[in-house]
Design a protein around this nucleic acid. Structure first.
Lengths: 125, 125
DNA sequence: CTTTGATGCAACTCGATGGTTGCACAACCT
DNA sequence: AGGTTGTGCAACCATCGAGTTGCATCAAAG
């Protein structure tokens, strides 16, 4: 269980990664960050795609926990939810650190082996 | 240019996000982290999919800069490349921080407005 | 030189996904 | 009541992407 901080973290992260992989979804998050609580129709005004498409994207973002919606009268306001993004950032940093560690170890071992080989026998490859 | 540290960072990040969105690709990176430099065929032995599929995934990872390949005789060894992951982690953390900032501001403004409203007229909702 | 094992390329299947349109329904405003 | 306006639902289309198979190719070993 390397580079994992809490059980089930990988699951949460997976959803966030999928959600962030789409440029339209990133744009959407951008707009939400800029304008606070906004309805889907309002979001649609600033984008070249239909409201329905946006609703679907918002559903994905909601499933990833990156967004939450509250009903206000007949409209539905969507708002940012930074926590999962932060968690994913931490997860990613930890994975990167893990890789660095492993690569350093591998390099060290390789050098040791080469040293060893140089003293006893000709290079294997 | 909010939450961006260097020009063109978003482009690099996009590739990494797409690459990481696929679970098979993540598994692949995991294997590479565990076993160092490995060829596609070797990777295929530990996974339930064909070598060709793996090669395609490795191509995506390579395009994202997460992996590099070097030819050794007749085989091609793939190795991890942590830098883009680290960059993406930083980008993500910076975006998360930006969101927090904005949300805090919005909340502050909302509270001020409510305060204002509370002094002159009864609560709107 | 022949065989063996690894790679590269291309065509194909098929499910997921981004996007659209049309319509029904609920809520707001006169 | 009656007309707007915003949502939700469902069908539908097109494309992308993951995966497969088959074959050609090229380096290494005999």
């Amino acid at each position: 269980m390397t580079a994992a901080e809490s059980p089930g973290a990988a699951d949460e992260v997976a959803g966030v990664l999928v959600a962030l992989a789409d440029p339209t979804r990133r744009k959407l998050l951008d707009l939400l960050a800029a304008r606070g609580e906004v309805s889907a129709t309002t979001l649609a005004e600033g984008l070249p795609i239909s409201r329905q498409a946006i609703v679907k994207h918002l559903a994905v973002l909601d499933a990833a926990g990156l967004v939450s919606c509250t009903r206000v009268g007949r409209e539905v306001r969507y708002a940012l939810r930074p926590a999962p993004l932060d968690a994913t950032a931490r997860w990613m940093a930890s994975v990167a650190a893990d890789w660095d560690r492993r690569l350093a170890t591998i390099k060290r071992v390789a050098e040791a082996a080469e040293q060893q080989a140089g003293q006893s026998r000709p290079p294997a490859q």
